[in-house]
Simulated scan of single mutants.
Amino acid sequence: MIIIYTFCIVNKESARVNSRFIISVNRNQERIVQFHTICHELGHLFCYHQFYTESKRRKLTIKEREFEAETVAWLVCKRHGIYNPSEEYLASYAPQGEIPICSTDLIMKAVAEIERMMESPIKIKESLWYKEDKGLKEKIRVIERQQKGPDLFA
Rank of each mutant, 00 (worst) to 15 (best):
S103I: 02
I143G: 15
M118W: 01
A154Y: 09
K63Q: 11
E41V: 13
I99W: 05
I114M: 03
E13M: 12
Q29K: 03
P150N: 10
L60Y: 12
F46T: 03
H49D: 11
L106E: 04
E41L: 07
E54W: 12
E119A: 15
R27N: 10
K139D: 05
T104K: 09
T104D: 05
I107K: 09
E54V: 05
I22S: 11
A73R: 06
I114E: 00
K12V: 00
K56H: 09
V111P: 03
G43I: 05
A73L: 11
P85A: 15
S120G: 14
C8A: 15
P95A: 14
V10M: 01
F153E: 09
Q146G: 09
V33Y: 00
E41Y: 11
V76P: 01
V10P: 05
C102W: 08
C102S: 13
E126Y: 06
I124D: 11
G97V: 08
E54N: 09
E113F: 07
A154Q: 07
F51H: 08
A110I: 01
G43M: 07
E54M: 11
K125I: 03
R16S: 08
G149L: 02
S103R: 12
I3Q: 03
R20F: 06
K59D: 07
I23V: 14
P150L: 08
K78M: 06
K59M: 10
I101T: 10
G135C: 10
G97E: 02
M1S: 11
S14M: 15
R116K: 15
V76L: 03
E66Y: 12
L75D: 02
V25I: 10
L106H: 09
N18R: 08
V142F: 04
F7E: 14
W129P: 04
R16K: 05
T37F: 01
I62M: 15
M117T: 01
P150S: 15
W74A: 09
V10S: 00
